[in-house]
Design a protein around this nucleic acid. Structure first.
Lengths: 210, 210
DNA sequence: TGAATTTGCAGAATAATATTCTGTAAAAGA
DNA sequence: TCTTTTACAGAATATTATTCTGCAAATTCA
């Protein structure tokens, strides 16, 4: 149930990294509650019962703390996507895997997902922007290869650059609405409706809305 | 061409507000270049050749400066949407208007659009979160009414909460990719492809991908 | 018109916050 | 055991946001 712990434990499994995990967990909560800019190092220090020295020792500075959380979330999300993709054979299954893995991950890790949105643009500036850009590029590249393996004739009439947005755009938008409280139904309730709609958008025949 | 000026001029037309506009323009550039947290009041003060007193007089604090820019962008975007919607009669035209107005605004005001993404989550915390939530709610409400006017039987099989995400999700995702440099083709080049795909996703018959 | 009041702005003073630095103890390695 | 590295504490410092006091132009009002 408490998957926040699990996620951290998996990414920082060292027994000695106890305080490090505590700092990350606390920082995640603070950032989500007050926003990144509004939470001070002193706040998380107090909630951790740690020292500023410990925080700066592990993460360098506030931005490093944000980046550590952000890339941890990115990795975890990618792991789930890979797991889903590994089981997909047809093009339609690949598309479904992409939508489902995204929706399922956000539903299972709402705190991490919320932070991911919160921090994306903070990270997209700053010293790790290149790392982020590189990751996005390789991810898109892998997706393109993955999609072209199967009968690509379906997607031939769509601009290549557009396909990724058509697939994850709706899910991403709904997840953000859910995380910000604009809608109340969990994205996982709509995972199939989203996947089916995306498949129609791509030109997949069959299975109209009704 | 230089629509940044036009946008500011329209929203803050007062002749006496010259410095105020200059501050906003400069702050927008700084925020977009270095990120919100990384740009200091001193930086924008120096580039404006103004004083800290002036900035705090007009905007209260840094967050107020961000909020002023953010809501200005939101208003301008909404104005274009209204203009497009006013000319739409059928359901398909309404959907097209929503996609087109979004894409066209981002293409025309990339600096403001970039900042909008940059600041959305900073604003979603902080004292104006209620204002933002309220705006989003009323916008969604208006959309629902607008959509239900026309032959709503098309959308009957789709969850109500999902429809907005299906319509703007793809465009929003592609625009963000463009603004962050992950893709190079202007969203306006794909405005029709996006609108058509969305229409298919909603279950619109006819016009398959090819 | 002229006094009163409000608005726009400057810049020094202050407060809040991020970051550095020095020291110490525990752990790891040789 | 000795040496080196790692983990941490907390005072000291630097950076940055914000406040405050004062003044002049503009506006309002009598």
């Amino acid at each position: 149930m408490e998957q926040t712990t699990d996620l951290l434990q998996r990414c920082y499994p060292s027994r000695r990294a106890e305080l490090k995990r505590t700092i990350l967990r606390t920082a995640l909560a603070c950032f989500n509650q007050h926003g990144i800019e509004a939470t001070t190092i002193e706040q998380v220090r107090a909630q951790c019962d740690a020292s500023v020295g410990a925080i700066y020792h592990h993460f360098g500075n506030k931005e490093g703390l944000v980046a550590a959380l952000f890339f941890t979330a990115l990795d975890d999300q990618a792991a789930l996507r890979e797991a889903y993709l590994a089981k997909a054979d047809t093009l339609e299954q690949v598309v479904h895997a992409l939508v489902h893995s995204y929706v399922d991950w956000v539903s299972a890790q709402p705190d991490w997902a919320r932070f991911q949105f919160l921090a994306r643009f903070a990270v997209s500036k700053g010293p790790l922007q290149d790392e982020l850009l590189a990751r996005n590029r390789t991810r898109n590249q892998q997706l393109r290869e993955r999609l072209s393996v199967h009968g690509a004739e379906l997607l031939q009439d769509l601009p290549k650059e557009l396909i990724a947005s058509l697939i994850v755009g709706p899910a991403e938008n709904y997840c953000r609405a859910w995380l910000s409280g604009r809608v109340s139904t969990s994205p996982s309730a709509y995972r199939d409706a989203l996947a089916a709609a995306v498949w129609r958008a791509l030109g997949g025949l069959e299975s109209p809305a009704h």
